[in-house]
Design a protein around this nucleic acid. Structure first.
Lengths: 340, 340
DNA sequence: TTGTACGCGTTATCAA
DNA sequence: TTGATAACGCGTACAA
């Protein structure tokens, strides 16, 4: 080594300490440091203490990329949603983030913009970067989902596909409560506002409502499909009135609120002339006048459990099995006795 | 190698193709493949075509961890928020995610749970995993933020700190509009409901309201600080009434909605006896009756621009400078002429 | 219990 | 223009 010219500083030294620095300071071999850091107990107490001390003094942080290379695990999980705009996913994100952080995992959020092909490409892009996926509101068909699941750990939320870990709340209970509530109020004909045609959830909700209504001996009619938006809900007001139903249940709260507002704007009293109910109990469902009656989905818990289950699968453990999360009826002001 | 017992399948072969596979198939050296893939043009057209072809056939996806190791860049950006629960951040997340995806970056969301020390620890944990941070609603003090910024690229949202890239919308214009709107309606005394004591934004908003009021020759009084929640807003109803202000502007929409509901519940007509306005125009601000008048912050655009600026800084380019994003008054039903 | 040596997939620095 | 070859930081058989 001879003369060195004054190089321009190599850009803000990436001055992070490595296990080599620790090794040197603690007077041991780097591999010993690695052992002490990854699973304490494999080295003598004394050296472990020295190593930990040195690590702390140097402010050591493991380099995740370097760690991922030999192990193949990135300790990163991805949450895929169809539409970040959708308030339903906010709560799922919240739960997912919390349990990822609790497990020492990093959570990546990605959006498929309601498009199946976009979803595939996102999945593909993220595949080498993460240890697994939580698919919330996937727009892929069952076969495509199974294929993803055969490549990488996957947990499905709000949908059931054979051979894939799925997390679906037991909304039947909440729906039964809702239908009973409406029947008790005196309603004899309930309209269900369908969500998007491809929505697995919407189809299940309709079936459950139909069954619950049949059991109660009242009528249920299906209207739609429609966009799961304020406008999508508002757009169905005419159809609801034509159906002569006295109560309308929408695929989700956003549609329900759209319908509620359209009704109010049209001079139709809620719940006086029309009762309205939704699903999910999203943020803002209690902002309306009257406040919205809704079947609350345990969204935050769903996000939490999904990520926990995914962590288990990634770690090659059996995910805990619990009872499906219950959905519950929240009665607020938008449902009441029908006009007669 | 002698006899091998029937091992359980070596767990779903991590069968991803590498540049070595491509190299072999294309009959070139791995380093050539790397060149062709990272910045086309450094190899002959012919071999580049062969390499691309082989890559496509093998379904090659670069391994981000392996790529990050020598380069030190992960092509991952972090968005830190104080509270995922806060609807304001939903829109920021949305914008951030979109421009991250557009730039080929992966976005990590992390939450500091309204705690400065938690924020530091999250920052610290994420530091080696990302190329930079967007800090939205940081709870750190200026000095701490500068220190982070000296270690890693940082873009600040909704706050200004010397020497750190900051993105703050020009809410003065919207506030001036709001105050003018109220003054024109006949209000002579406006109450401002402060947010959290440490909130940089809340302090700026109060100053702007005070100044705008002074300019209009009307009074402004400060109430609080308070929690930026529904309850936090509701809790101030008494103080608002005592202040004898005829209009109340809250630090944000959530507080405003809390106040609005508390007023309505207490039989105080909005806007008949009390006008209420908020900030941000969050999801649900138009669910209330009356709908909430508010100063709309360009949250989605803020998230977008923040991530774009961060990408520029990471790439060692000068971030684009635009005019600060404008905030605008959205007049809805919750403001009206004061009772006399 | 600890050290040696190699590999993970890629980029980058040399030569050729 | 391309091919060797050395990092990058860490985990881990294997040997001591």
């Amino acid at each position: 080594m001879s003369l060195e010219a004054a190089e321009p500083l190599p850009r803000k030294r990436r001055g992070r300490a490595t296990i080599y620095d620790i090794a040197q300071r603690a007077g041991v071999n780097p591999s010993t440091v690695s052992r002490a850091l990854t699973r304490p107990g494999r080295v003598s107490e004394e050296t472990e203490a020295r190593i930990m001390q040195a690590a702390k003094e140097l402010g050591y942080r493991a380099n995740p990329a370097a760690r991922a290379l030999p192990t193949g695990r990135t300790r990163t999980l991805a949450l895929l949603v169809a539409d970040i705009t959708n308030p339903v996913v906010f709560d799922i994100i919240r739960g997912a983030e919390r349990s990822a952080a609790a497990g020492g995992y990093t959570l990546v959020i990605a959006e498929s913009q309601e498009s199946g092909t976009e979803e595939s490409s996102v999945l593909d892009r993220l595949l080498p970067a993460v240890d697994g996926f939580v698919l919330a509101m996937s727009r892929l068909d069952d076969e495509a989902i199974r294929e993803v699941a055969s490549t990488s750990p996957v947990v499905l939320v709000n949908r059931r596909v054979d051979c894939v870990e799925s997390l679906v709340p037991a909304f039947e209970a909440g729906i039964a409560e809702l239908v009973a509530h409406l029947a008790d109020l005196g309603h004899r004909r309930i309209a269900y506002l369908d969500g998007p045609a491809q929505s697995w959830t919407s189809a299940r909700r309709w079936e459950a409502i139909r069954d619950a209504a049949a059991e109660r001996g009242i009528e249920a009619v299906e209207i739609g499909p429609g966009e799961p938006t304020l406008d999508g809900g508002a757009a169905q007001l005419g159809a609801v009135l034509e159906s002569e139903a006295t109560a309308a249940v929408a695929y989700n709260d956003v549609m329900a609120i759209g319908l509620l507002r359209a009704a109010t704007a049209a001079g139709i009293a809620v719940p006086g002339r029309l009762s309205v109910a939704g699903f999910d109990d999203i943020f803002g469902a209690d902002f309306t006048t009257p406040q919205l009656t809704t079947v609350k989905a345990p969204l935050t818990e769903l996000g939490e459990q999904a990520v926990r289950a995914l962590q288990a699968i990634v770690a090659d453990e059996e995910p805990e099995r619990h009872e499906p999360l219950p959905s519950t009826l929240i009665v607020r002001g938008s449902t009441g006795a029908p006009a007669r």
